[in-house]
Simulated assay, not measured.
Amino acid sequence: MKAAWAAAAVLLIVAACGRDELDTVTYEGARFAGDLSFERGDRAAFVATGGPASVSLEGAKRAASYQVVQHCIAYLGSSDVAWANGPDVEDADLVIQDDRVVLSGRCIEP
């Protein structure tokens, strides 16, 4: 019984460690974390963030974009995106909140 609890604890720790690696992008030697949110009723629409923007705007945009591609493929089967505020926006026009780049748009259904 103790062995089963120990094995379960190890699996939880390993699973938790692995998740952080899936949410990070390395750009020019620095690590950038990304996150994405959406409403259950409309999974195609999203808001993604990446940062820290103070280290590199390009790295932060890549981290957020990575989250978008993963989300769109997982839920709609395509990586096509119609950006409302995307990574192609001029750096001066980017939305930045709490040292994180904010991207938004909709996944395009195939």
Rank of each mutant, 00 (worst) to 15 (best):
M1T: 13
M1K: 12
M1L: 09
A3C: 05
A6C: 03
A8I: 10
A8Y: 03
A9I: 08
V10N: 00
V10W: 02
L11A: 12
L11V: 10
L11R: 07
I13N: 01
A16T: 10
D20Y: 11
D20N: 07
E21K: 04
L22G: 06
L22T: 15
L22A: 14
T26L: 12
Y27S: 08
Y27T: 11
G29L: 06
A30R: 05
A30D: 08
F32R: 02
F32E: 03
S37W: 03
E39K: 11
R40N: 09
V47W: 01
A48T: 13
A48D: 06
A48L: 09
A48C: 10
P52E: 00
P52R: 05
S56T: 05
L57R: 09
R62T: 00
Y66V: 00
V68I: 13
V69H: 11
Q70R: 12
I73G: 01
I73Q: 07
A74H: 15
Y75W: 15
D80M: 09
A84W: 03
D88F: 00
E90A: 11
A92C: 06
D98M: 02
D98C: 06
D99A: 09
V102C: 01
V102D: 00
L103S: 09
L103N: 04
G105M: 06
R106C: 01
R106K: 06
I108D: 00
I108Q: 05
E109A: 15
